[in-house]
Nucleic acid binder design. Structure first.
Lengths: 340, 340
DNA sequence: TCGGCCACTGTAAACCTTTACATAGTTCAT
DNA sequence: ATGAACTATGTAAAGGTTTACAGTGGCCGA
């Protein structure tokens, strides 16, 4: 099980008959070494199977070419596609991704910061919507590591952010329902202290206001964005006996809960009720009826976030510290004209 | 943007009035230093805010305490839960997780191996079902990095493996259908050269054989495990005009395809057809009818795989090089007695 | 009194790079 | 002919740890 000693730069240098400095240059700044020498070096590298020891390199250069991803839940259906985008861009630029699943546990967040403070990661991508515990308190402390929030902004901290335009997206969604003739439109998933929920609710209000529709406050229901909350919300509507003709849900998971509840009550969807989601998660097209929703450009979000972070990391000035992408309306079968 | 120079072990040593060796020992082998000294050191550490530079440490110790995860698709619904398990165990033992999304692209696989050869990762977790390109060809080369396959075994390579007992699980599933009175049971998702599919098909055959049921070969349908393949398979059954009373599907995604197809044809499920899946992905309970399936203990799989890898890494002899966990029957609403 | 042992600490090498600076040789304008 | 400028390479330091080995002083048994 003993691992055979790997070739070092010295071995290569010896075989090529040059100094280690020349080997290093042949690898990293090829133009600075004579053609003949460079050929001898590359030859020796091939023969020895040499690979640069990244640890020594990082130690010397004081950077690891690693990015730490801090996510509350890697199982979130939005997460994986964004991750692929992050990874595409990182990989292209020679960076690797370190993954930190925090479950929103402060001690885990703090624990993962060790990767930053120990130089194992150069920067940080935040999915959490808040600064990791352990950075939050020392906000006077100006030397925050370079970081970018994605999907959910960090409130009140002016952290560079890449996400979707939630206000605009929700407005488009609500306008689509209005264009189908709906006037009594519920909003499911109110949560004023969650930025995303708040913005989507605002978009909904803007659309209805713009169309001159008065909002029945009984049609706005709290929810934390889980399927279970969607189910509960629909049930609550029946208890309140204040029914809408359409449900605009804060996200697809919530919409699925609503649909499940309505299906269970044997309503015929979408004839009796229209339902819209937001996100376009992978299963949105598989539920019955398939879900009309706003698609988040997740792959591009990931790419844009990584690009922004790497710009910051290079010490350059980014074009903008906030990137808002547009969500796209995806028409499926869960929305139709209201009954009657 | 210049980062203030971080405290090193020398700063701590100076402040505590000891040598750097003593500081190192106070941190890593506290019993070996006198109480009074240790206090002075921990004090100095607190005052300077010192953290060990992981790069220097890794360089010296020749290990990085990082594990590379090679996955073909981080969006796979099975993946994330296993990842959480891997991460739980790794984190407990002070290891970090590096993520490599390969999309089954050989060049990306090879590219990610640089983390291994450059000492940035000590070991490898394989979700891919095959050796990464770049290791495969040199199979004579005995110095493979320590690795463990999870979820899907690596065929013909004797790589340590942690997964679910697919044969047994599929047999239990088929026996459940039989116990409900089904005799004409289809198997959807035949793919003889995919280990998982083959084992599940074998389990299905074993159950039917054990019950003395002859298998109509028209009831066994090819499929690659996607939702689309499930939909196509169901349609094919109608074309062939050889209908089962129950569909045993190679996984939940396939089962969802089957259900979607049957729903679209306006059959009343589960009264007219029973459908079973395998995996228990998160949306299995949300589709209508909710899916009866075999649950994979994904979190435990992840933990077990990481445990096995770390044992290997420590140079110890594992209890066993193959861990097969049992899948659990989850009863929901997509299975009932056959009609008539 | 002496030697051995023990507990504690220090010195210095090793881990493998990158790169500032120095050196040597060549070219070329003056 | 001279020296400036340039190209190609080498020397050696620096990056921050861990740890083998070597003390040092105290204690104890003979």
């Amino acid at each position: 099980m003993l691992q055979q000693k790997l070739a070092t730069i010295e071995d290569v240098a010896a075989m090529a008959g040059v100094s280690i400095a020349t080997v290093s240059r042949a690898i990293n700044e090829p133009t600075k070494v004579a053609d003949a020498t460079r050929r001898r070096v590359t030859d020796a590298i091939a023969r020895t199977g040499y690979t640069t020891n990244a640890m020594a390199r990082s130690l010397r250069m004081r950077r690891s070419n690693m990015i730490l991803i801090l996510a509350p839940d890697v199982g979130d259906p939005n997460f994986s596609n964004i991750l692929v985008g992050l990874e595409t861009e990182a990989s292209k630029r020679g960076y690797g991704l370190l993954i930190g699943n925090t479950q929103n546990d402060p001690s885990r967040e703090a624990d993962y910061l060790r990767f930053i403070s120990s130089n194992q990661a150069d920067g940080l991508i935040l999915f959490t919507g808040h600064l990791p515990f352990g950075l939050g308190q020392s906000l006077t402390d100006a030397r925050l590591p370079p970081m970018v929030a994605v999907n959910e902004p960090v409130l009140g901290q002016d952290i560079p952010f890449v996400g979707v335009d939630n206000f605009e997206g929700a407005r488009i969604a609500a306008e689509h329902l209005i264009s189908q003739g709906h006037r009594r439109i519920a909003f499911v998933g109110r949560a004023p202290n969650r930025e995303i929920n708040r913005l989507r609710e605002d978009g909904y209000r803007a659309a209805l206001g713009g169309a001159g529709i008065n909002i029945d406050p009984r049609l706005i229901i709290d929810g934390d964005g889980t399927t279970e909350s969607g189910r509960a919300a629909a049930e609550l509507m029946f208890v309140r006996d204040a029914l809408p003709t359409a449900f605009l849900c804060v996200n697809d998971a919530t919409a699925m809960g609503v649909i499940i509840s309505l299906n269970a009550r044997r309503y015929d969807l979408p004839r009796q009720f229209s339902v819209m989601g937001f996100d376009d998660i992978s299963f949105a097209s598989f539920i019955t009826p398939s879900l009309t929703t706003m698609k988040q450009p997740r792959h591009r979000m990931g790419e844009a976030a990584m690009e922004l972070l790497l710009t910051l990391l290079a010490g350059e000035m980014p074009k903008s510290r906030e990137v808002l992408l547009r969500a796209e309306l995806i028409l499926r079968n869960s929305v139709t004209r209201p009954p009657g």
